[in-house]
Amino acid sequence: MNSAIEVTGLHKSFGRTHALDGLDLTVARGEVHGFLGPNGAGKSTTIRVLLGLLRADGGEARLLGGDPWRDAVRLHSRLAYVPGDVTLWRNLSGGEVIDLLGRLRGGLDEGRKQELLRRFELDPTKKGRTYSKGNRQKVALVAALASDAELLILDEPTSGLDPLMEEVFRECVTEERDRGRTVLLSSHILSEVEALCDRVSIIRGGRTVETGTLAELRHLTRTSITAELAGPPNGLARLPGVHDLDVRGNRVKLQVDTDQLDAVLRQISESGVRGLNCAPPTLEELFLRHYQSEAVAR
């Protein structure tokens, strides 16, 4: 049993809305897995099925070797969860909530809690209703990170944090990985995913559209090239993998499939290169490509 999370062909409908439409997701033990998708793609629904809060209509989900619906309580003592929209009890202080959630899970590390409170600069004496969104998230994060759970499920945990706190969050997740914990990180922030995640799954409309390591995914993307040449370019249009070719005099702009990069560069250099700008493929591009194709599909 190597996978912390193993989901195949998951279906879930709310009335007429198909929130999940055959979603697949595999998270190996010890990895930080990025879970990407536009709003309404089904990220939170998937997580809530994994937590046994929703019951799947079809497909299979395994969590830490158990059934997330039937074995919910047993599994929950081995994981910690940070919801996307953290709501706290209005008249409980942040410190009380952290302790309470820790005790309900079966214990938390007092020293680590104090350290996290300090690093996140969180005042635990404020009442739940007086915290801002970011501070509510910090309460949930401290409660989750101070636990000794083997799996962390984080649903857009940094959407309310400022850049400094985001940096603290990244350090913490890196430490968790070094300790051998598994992290499922649903996120919108691509730089965060690029910095933290070993593998990524991109979902859209309740299905998984891409999954793999960042290197694998980059391979699928295109590099954009802008070149200033000594003479007019030739033969570029005939090469496979070239897209959006735009030639103006000696200046050329194009996109190229990353696996065809070598041949295209060779062809360009034949015309004599005076200047070259070569933008590496980013997750954004991959992301946008999937998102835009969704927009077109609509």
């Binding site: 809530r48 937590l51 046994g52 809060l53 919910a72 309580v73 047993r74 929950h76 003592s77 994981l79 969860y81 919801p83 929209d85 953290v86 709501t87 706290l88 009890w89 959630l101 309900l104 899970r105 079966g106 949930a140 499920i153």
Partner: peptide
């Protein structure tokens, strides 16, 4: 409905 049951039920507490 206020979302406060969710974090509790995500711990080792049965419904």
């Amino acid at each position: 409905s206020g979302g406060r049951a969710e974090p509790v039920l995500a711990t080792a507490v049965g419904r």
